[in-house]
């Protein structure tokens, strides 16, 4: 479904150019859930933005659903690929009601029947009609993220790109959102591409993962191996170790 070959992203030009992603390749099968894992600056979010078309400064090949993607994306691409962002406070327009936020993609893609679609989208993310005419500032972080998910799913995409979708949320709210994403994926057969630094979330949500460091993929592995703690690469093992909490080293 997603096929990325030798993707390289550079920021800036001339001498001060920074290579954020250097020759990354991976494939995600239809219906599969794949994670890009890494620390800040590893280039994982940059890969996601290049695939989504938000960042046009890349070289290499990006194929989505078998179709080669260029700098500009078609309306069909936008209908098939949607994204959920990290910050639920920044991803909703502060002056638009939930109704308008959800009506806009339907209008852009000329899907029609907005009324029924909006009601169903709210229903699906576990928010009733009572939320339809509220503004973002009247919603909690978790509710906002549900609206962001509803906005992405109202176009009935086949691929959902998730950029740290729960890292700004409280633990209990994170559990609700993760459960929601799992359910929606199962119901719709979505292909997920998840960017996160949290290996526990990868274990819950994905089948395979790629570990990124300094713009490169250092290891691609099955989640089953992750659960067993069997990583081939030293950096991956270090990440797994670090995510288990603090280990007191008795210093001399």
């Amino acid at each position: 479904m997603i096929d990325v070959r030798d993707l390289t992203v550079r920021f800036g030009g001339g001498r001060s150019a920074v290579t954020a992603v250097a020759g990354v390749s991976f494939r995600v099968a239809e219906g599969e859930s794949f994670a890009l894992v890494g620390e800040s600056g590893s280039g994982k979010s940059t890969v996601l933005r290049a695939i989504s078309g938000l960042n046009p400064d890349w070289t290499g090949r990006v194929l989505v659903g078998g179709a080669e993607q260029g700098r500009r994306r078609t309306a069909a691409f936008h209908k098939a690929v949607q994204m959920v962002f990290q910050d639920p406070y920044g991803s909703l327009h502060p002056r638009h009601t939930v109704d308008r936020i959800l009506a806009e993609p339907v209008a852009i893609q000329r899907l029609g029947d907005a009324e029924r679609r909006i009601e169903r989208a709210l229903e699906e993310v576990g928010l009733g009609g009572g939320f339809r005419f509220r503004y973002p500032h009247q919603l909690s972080g978790g509710q906002r993220q549900r609206i962001a998910i509803a906005r992405a799913l109202i176009l009935e995409p086949r691929v959902l790109l998730l950029d740290e979708p729960t890292s700004a949320l409280d633990l209990s709210v994170q559990a609700e959102i993760l459960n929601l994403l799992r359910r929606l994926r199962a119901e719709r057969g979505l292909t997920l591409l998840l960017v996160t630094h949290n290996l526990a979330i990868v274990s819950l949500m994905c089948e395979r993962l790629a570990v990124m460091q300094a713009g490169r993929i250092v290891e691609t592995m099955d989640v089953a191996d992750l659960r067993r703690g069997e990583a081939a690469d030293g950096y991956t093992r270090h990440l797994i170790e670090a995510s288990r909490g603090y280990r007191r080293v008795t210093s001399a």
Partner: peptide
């Protein structure tokens, strides 16, 4: 550079729609 503009672009919104519907009201 905010995420809600990125989201609108991902929906395929035209520059005119983003300017008029999202940027100008703010």
């Amino acid at each position: 550079n905010s995420d809600f503009i990125a989201a609108a672009r991902l929906q395929g919104a035209s520059a005119a729609r983003i300017l008029w519907g999202h940027v100008v009201p703010l």
